[in-house]
């Protein structure tokens, strides 16, 4: 009893709302539109948003430390265009993937180091990072480069059929690259819950001074968090090139906002210290379902943006109100817990 109760502390309220919201939206779509209710609609949320989810998981690490990373969209785009460029030059696909992932890590480490050692604002540093990477995209190629590599193609086109019944609605397909997302998700879950580094990430977001005085390695934790964010963005970029089979430097403009929105809608506090990667994935699924509904309704796609912004606003304000309440409660305290 005690254990189940603890699961629903204040922090998880927004996640709970999100899950309920997702179910409601899915139900709404199913009732309103023909062919909406199917496993395939559900699985497509992953097929279409895997790259966003991967990048979102990465940025969640940074958000939990209390930072922000808005460079990820450019990193995704750069990874895409640079891998396409390298493949075009005949570099083997595994080497290409390795190279772009390492570049991702380097970008993250550099940003994290600037932020930590020189106490610069994460927002400014990663905004500069965003410009830098976006600029480099165009330096590599101004035009879209198609990808013809067989490995990339096999990743892009192969899928696993999933059947839950004989009805048409009960079957769907998952592309191979979605399993990368699942792997990232599981590893992140484990890291955040069961490793020292993961717990340090939370401690850092709770109170950086305390974390330092408790003897935690703040520098390494913070820089690693930014490195993970950029690494995931690069990995997201690889998945994105599987998805599109092309690299184009102007792709994914503003995607960092989608990733941040996913995290926030999934219950991550932008003030740091609270957040889960599962929440981020669900946040991205909500965005996906809004997109799907907007498509079914044949609305202007910009409605998606506006709806997401409204949701984002709602969640941020709700979080804030909860926090204000908590602050007020604090005055009373629980000093009587002393026996």
């Amino acid at each position: 009893m005690e254990k189940t109760k603890k699961k629903f502390q204040i922090n998880n309220i927004s996640l709970l709302i999100t899950v309920v919201l997702f179910v409601l939206m899915f139900a709404f779509g199913s009732v309103k539109y023909d062919n909406f209710f199917s496993i395939s609609t559900f699985l497509n949320l992953f097929n279409d948003n895997a790259y966003l989810m991967i990048a979102g998981i990465g940025v969640t690490f940074v958000l939990i430390t209390g930072g922000i990373d808005i460079s990820i969209s450019s990193t995704v785009a750069f990874t895409g265009v640079f891998s396409a460029y390298l493949l075009q030059k005949g570099v083997p696909s595994f080497a290409v993937i390795l190279i772009v992932l390492v570049i991702g890590i380097i970008v993250g480490v550099a940003q994290g180091a600037l932020i930590h050692y020189f106490n610069m604002q994460p927002f400014i540093v990663t905004l500069a990072g965003q410009f830098l990477m976006r600029g480099l995209c165009v330096v590599v190629s101004e035009a879209s480069i198609p990808i013809t590599d067989p490995f990339f193609k096999s990743m892009a086109l192969n899928k696993v059929a999933i059947k839950l019944g004989s009805a048409k609605a009960a079957s769907g397909k998952l592309y191979y690259y979605v399993f990368i997302l699942l792997a990232v998700l599981l590893i992140s879950l484990y890291v955040l819950k069961y490793t020292k580094f993961g717990r340090n990430v939370y401690a850092l977001g709770g109170n950086e001074t305390s974390a330092k005085l408790m003897g935690l390695n703040v520098a390494r934790t913070k820089i690693c968090a930014y490195a993970i964010s950029s690494f995931c963005a690069a990995l997201g970029g690889v998945v994105f090139s599987f998805y599109t089979l092309a690299g184009y430097g102007l792709q994914n403009m503003g995607m960092e906002l989608d990733a941040l929105s996913s995290a926030v809608i999934g219950g991550t506090l932008l003030t740091g210290g609270v957040g889960t990667v599962v929440g981020t994935v669900i946040g991205a699924m909500i965005q996906g379902i809004i997109q799907t509904i907007v498509t079914y309704q044949n609305l202007n796609t910009w409605w998606t943006k506006v709806t997401i912004a409204a949701l984002l606003c709602f969640f941020i304000v709700v979080q804030r109100i909860i926090a204000i309440r908590a602050e007020k409660m604090k005055g009373k305290g629980e000093s009587d817990s002393y026996k």
Binding site: M120, F131, L132
Partner: peptide
């Protein structure tokens, strides 16, 4: 020079300025 490089330049510039404002950097 292609316009894209301006982005790179601006990014570098803002990092340099922020560095110059950073107390930690000056101390270093």
């Amino acid at each position: 020079v292609p316009a894209a490089y301006i982005r790179v330049l601006k990014a570098v510039l803002i990092i340099v300025i922020c560095l110059s404002q950073s107390k930690e950097f000056k101390e270093m």
